[in-house]
Design a protein around this nucleic acid. Structure first.
Lengths: 107, 107
DNA sequence: TTAACGTATAGCCGAACGGGTATAAATGAG
DNA sequence: CTCATTTATACCCGTTCGGCTATACGTTAA
């Protein structure tokens, strides 16, 4: 069920969606109605955003009667931290190469 | 010069832009022309993407004659890692609360 | 000074986005 | 069974986005 890296970045690019995800991280499982209360947008919009977060793997839903409970999947952030670490390593490695070069020039 | 958190997430939501940033991390300073060669899009598009990355603080530019050299600013990723850590801490803290509750119930 | 070069800007276009309202679909309550 | 409740879907609308080409602007080379 792993979504694309692109899907993950895109899902997190909207502040309304990040807000929903953040509330689920902070407060745990919540229904669509509860999320709508403080989301600042209408219920259909919340549902649509939750769908996008779900396709990105950032949330899961649990049906209970006529209510749907959503919860954050913190592990879905892994590709993001991986990417960041990768970029940092690339950057650092160039730095190391430069150090090596300077050291060789020193000799 | 710190850009909005939203600007950062938005800037990274496009794979072409991430590709440009990644090349700058991997290979260091590059001109627009050099970046255009392997970007898969036209030069004006590359320039526009670089402008967006620049406003997000992810790159800086250095003018040299008629060439513009761009380089990655790895530190600009900090708000992203901060946010991720924040989310994880929220999530973890709920987990800890649950553990506390269960421990109290145990006594 | 003129010509070529490197980059940025302007303007266009179709697709995707984020919001809204109306409504369908499913479930629970009376 | 009927009606209220909860969520998801369908559809519309204006804006933004990401690509393109044409071109303006500044710089170097001849």
């Amino acid at each position: 069920m792993s979504a694309t890296r692109d899907e993950l970045f895109r899902a997190l690019s909207d502040s309304t969606r990040r807000g929903l995800f953040e509330r689920l991280c902070r407060e745990g499982e919540k229904t669509v109605g509860a999320l709508t209360e403080r989301a600042g947008v209408s219920q259909p919009v919340v549902s649509r955003h939750l769908g996008i977060l779900k396709r990105a793997g950032l949330v899961t839903d649990r049906q209970a009667g006529r209510k749907t409970h959503y919860s954050a999947q913190i592990g879905a952030l892994a590709p993001l931290t991986d990417w960041t670490r990768e970029m940092t390593e690339f950057w650092q490695s160039r730095f190391d190469d430069l150090e090596d070069l300077l050291q060789r020039m020193d000799q």
